[in-house]
């Protein structure tokens, strides 16, 4: 899973943006590679996918990297833009959004839930660096309990979406998502397989992918920017689903697969509009 100078970059990404301006040792590139690898293994080309991005590290670093068409939303809104876009796009075009944890699970959660509710055909890759790192390192809604950040100098003690048995996946499943998976950046081929399933689902798919931030997160919590430490820290807290232990924060694998179990949003809307137009009623 070497990221640089691979054939994938030439095939799918723009040389102007790769390598990105991400900090040295940032794990985002690994996640990005996982997604592009999945696209490649599915035999899709740059024109098959419209790439959306969010605000923050995950969005900014992946914006403009895709050779095909791409757009970025302001804080938390890319889901709403993508939902409107879905109506206008031909069904064979895929939408993939690479977003961050603050964007998806904080400011954009309402819009995200409504995308899940209406089962919009889109694949959301939540690249979770465990807080707001591009603004210097504040805690977010998936930051593990007790972690020190610039805005939790005594250790993060708020209830959040990943504390006390809570899991943001429950919310998304309840809201109607039809494919949910979680992988940490170092899951490699397992993660690629899940992202492929996510893309193939004609409905709302989300893959939650925590990744290491050696700069702001690691320097505050671990007191070191040495990437080895933060990679190890994350790896220790991730276990495949069913093999969790007391230290597990992220149970990895396919969390929920209801692929093609519900009508897809735009198909459903267009079918309904077509019927009203023809017959005057539903």
């Amino acid at each position: 899973m070497q990221y640089s100078s691979s054939a994938l970059i030439q095939k799918y990404l723009r040389s102007r943006k790769i390598p990105s301006t991400a900090c040295s040792g940032c794990g985002l590139g690994i996640n990005h590679k996982v997604v592009v690898q999945a696209v490649d293994e599915l035999g899709l080309g740059p024109a098959d996918i419209i790439w959306g991005t969010s605000i923050g590290c995950a969005g900014r670093q992946t914006f403009g990297t895709w050779q095909g068409d791409g757009f970025a939303g302001t804080h938390g809104r890319v889901y709403a833009i993508a939902r409107g876009l879905r109506i206008a796009l031909p069904p064979e075009k895929k939408i993939i959004c690479t977003v961050g944890d603050g964007d998806a699970f904080g400011i954009g959660l309402l819009h995200l839930i409504h995308c899940a509710r209406s089962n919009v055909d889109m694949t959301i890759i939540v690249n979770d660096n465990l807080g707001y790192q591009s603004t210097g390192g504040q805690f977010g809604f998936t930051t593990p309990q007790g972690v020190k950040t610039d805005s939790s100098p005594y250790g993060m003690f708020e209830h959040n979406l990943m504390s006390e048995g809570m899991d943001v996946m429950h919310i998304l499943k309840g809201a109607g998502a039809t494919f949910l998976a979680r992988h940490v950046a170092m899951d490699g081929p397992r993660a690629v397989e899940s992202v492929k399933k996510a893309i193939l689902n004609r409905g709302f798919s989300l893959v939650h992918m925590p990744y290491p931030c050696p700069t702001n997160f690691a320097s505050r919590e671990l007191g070191s920017r040495n990437q080895v430490n933060i990679y190890r820290w994350i790896k220790q807290r991730a276990k495949p689903l069913g093999q969790e232990d007391a230290n597990t924060v992220w149970a990895t694998g396919v969390w929920y697969d209801a692929t093609d179990s519900r009508p897809e949003f735009s198909e459903h809307i267009w079918a309904s509009v077509g019927k009203i137009r023809r017959t005057g009623a539903l």
């Binding site: 833009i81 993508a82 409107g84 876009l85």
Partner: peptide, 17 residues
Amino acid sequence: AEDECAAMHLCIGASLG
């Protein structure tokens, strides 16, 4: 939409398409 902010973003999305 779920709120007005989303409503105009959905319009943006459709216009973008």
